[in-house]
């Protein structure tokens, strides 16, 4: 296996590194300090958002640096912004699952403004069907909406890219959470809890 060296530009700095490295590794390899925008290095924490422009391409894409291999002529900028403002809600405040849909619009009023630009779908580094998910949530189909966001790493790129300030990732998470909160009632777990409560299990050391 022959190592091929490539030259690229990261955060405005010229970087030379083997093409078997991802963007973060390449930046470190070239001796540049980098701590912010680095997280799990496995593509699940959503910290290492970057904008990437490849050579001879007019396209600029948003990606996760730890998941993107360095390429010849690549231009990269880390996007380390603070988490945008959150919509707040407490699951415990939902007294009744019949009310979730109406409360959803109190919490996320912007959802009905979706202009269907599709920007969130394009920007998502996990290729989630974001816009569709928001639409499903708006229709009250939370379980279905939530399924679309299984791989969401909460990188907030869709949020920062939404012209209507919808927080699609948070909508997706909301959909998942209410589904669990109201619908997961496993009898095997409940039986065991009950048995423990009755004192049927004790540990002998």
């Amino acid at each position: 296996m022959v190592k091929k060296m490539v030259s690229a530009k990261i955060n405005g700095h010229a970087v030379t590194a083997p093409d078997s490295m991802n963007i973060i590794q390449a930046y470190w390899h070239a001796g540049f300090p980098r701590i912010s925008g680095v997280g799990c290095l496995e593509g699940v924490c959503g910290s290492c958002r970057v904008m990437v422009r490849r050579v001879d391409s007019g396209k600029v894409t948003a990606e996760l640096a730890c998941q993107t291999m360095i390429e010849e002529g690549m231009q990269v900028q880390f996007l380390s912004f603070q988490t945008p403002k959150q919509h707040t809600y407490r699951l415990a405040d939902f007294k009744n699952s019949w009310d979730v849909q109406s409360q959803f619009f109190d919490i996320f009023p912007e959802v009905s403004h979706c202009r269907h630009c599709g920007g969130c779908d394009v920007v998502c580094p996990k290729d989630i069907d974001v816009e569709n998910g928001v639409g499903l949530a708006a229709m009250g189909r939370f379980r279905e909406a939530g399924e679309l966001f299984v791989e969401c790493v909460m990188c907030n790129l869709c949020k920062s890219g939404c012209p209507e300030q919808i927080a699609p990732n948070q909508v997706g998470l909301f959909a998942r959470r209410v589904t669990a909160y109201f619908h997961i009632r496993p009898s095997n777990l409940i039986n065991r809890l009950e048995a423990i409560r009755r004192g049927e299990f004790r540990i002998t050391r």
């Binding site: 894409t61 996007l79 630009c117 920007g119 890219g161 012209p163």
Partner: peptide, 18 residues
């Protein structure tokens, strides 16, 4: 003003502005 269709424009201006 960015309409949202092109992430580099929307996120780019957002980030520049920040």
């Amino acid at each position: 003003a960015s309409c949202g269709q092109c992430p580099p424009c929307k996120s780019g201006t957002y980030y520049l502005s920040m």
